[in-house]
Amino acid sequence: MYYLVKNFRDKSVTLRIKIYGESSSVRVVTPNNYYHEVYVMSRKKETSRNLERVNINGHLVPIDRSRKHHRGWETYWDDKLEGLQSVMEYLLDIFGIKKVTTIIVSPDTMRLLDVLKERQGNNYELYQYDRLTKVLRISGLSSNFPIGKYLQTIDTLCVGSKVSITLDDLLNMNCVELLLSKNRFTSTEIKRLLQHWAIGGLRRLKYLSLWVSDLNMEDVFGELTHTRDDGKERIKECTFHLFQMIEFD
């Protein structure tokens, strides 16, 4: 079957690959939005030990192709994230599709963004649930999740749990809006961040919401004396907006 599909399918029909993190599935979609879906299930949910096994990207896994599954097949994996990546690569290859068109992320599948970035850069549509967006509102991530690496490609990020992020991540971010509701930053870190902002860094940033511990207002704002290119003091404008955008204990 692999040989027949790969070599004899109608290549004039442009197909798309979509990944659905919430339902752990990969779809092959036609121009008319018809699709075939392959689900990635936990091995614990395998109800029959008599299922056929197929080789998907080097992994011999059980598959249920019975008609009771509307528009899709179920595959069973020990590691669901590995399963999603393997099914994705398999379908891209068998249908001759060069790149994933769309990914709908969930907290469990955020790591797939690393895979896509390595294979095709940032050339894909990123959704959360059913909305096209570069806005991510996330909760439930583990405290060691490296969210900082995504701050170059996301316009707005709102995270409702503590994550792994450094001052350097903030200084190098490209966000328009950033809200971190559980991480704590020191007065010294905020001082460096605001100084960087005042001299022209973080050019796209419009809104910043952070929790700050032991903030000394005079110390933080006292040394921000940078002037704009037109010679006017920039700090008056920056101080007002930054004060509104930072939340304090």
Rank of each mutant, 00 (worst) to 15 (best):
T153N: 01
D130V: 04
Q85M: 05
R27F: 12
D130A: 12
S187G: 03
N122H: 00
T225A: 08
S25E: 15
T156L: 06
K18M: 08
Q85C: 05
F248W: 08
R65K: 09
E89G: 01
R184A: 07
V26T: 14
N174L: 04
D230M: 06
T47W: 06
P62K: 02
P146H: 11
I103G: 05
N123W: 08
L81M: 12
S164T: 01
S42C: 02
L151A: 08
I19P: 02
K68E: 12
K6V: 01
Y34Q: 09
C175T: 14
L180G: 12
G121H: 04
I94G: 03
R184Y: 09
M1G: 09
I147C: 14
D108C: 04
E189W: 06
K18C: 13
R43I: 14
V212L: 12
L194H: 13
S24G: 03
I246P: 14
K149V: 10
T186Q: 05
A198G: 11
V220S: 06
S187R: 05
D169E: 04
S25I: 00
G83E: 03
E233D: 11
Y34E: 14
I190P: 07
L116F: 12
V38H: 11
E233S: 13
I56K: 00
R204I: 00
Q152G: 08
R111L: 01
Q195L: 06
S181W: 08
L242K: 05
N33P: 00
L178S: 12
L116C: 02
Y3R: 10
L141Y: 02
T30P: 09
G231F: 06
L224C: 02
L208A: 05
V212S: 02
S142L: 05
H69V: 08
P62N: 08
G148D: 00
V5I: 15
V159S: 13
L215Y: 00
L92V: 01
G83Q: 04
K6E: 11
L193V: 01
Q195R: 10
M1K: 04
M173Q: 13
C238F: 14
L210E: 11
L51I: 13
L242F: 12
E125Q: 03
D93W: 08
I103A: 14
E46W: 01
L193Q: 09
L157K: 02
L92A: 03
C158V: 14
I147M: 08
M88D: 03
I19F: 05
K162I: 03
Y76E: 09
T188V: 04
V115S: 15
Q244P: 00
V54W: 15
E177Y: 06
L112T: 08
L180R: 04
R203Q: 10
T102S: 09
N33T: 08
Q120K: 06
S48V: 00
N174Q: 15
I235R: 11
C238A: 07
H69K: 11
V105I: 13
T101W: 15
K6R: 05
V115H: 14
N57I: 00
C238V: 15
D230N: 13
D79M: 02
G121M: 07
Q128E: 06
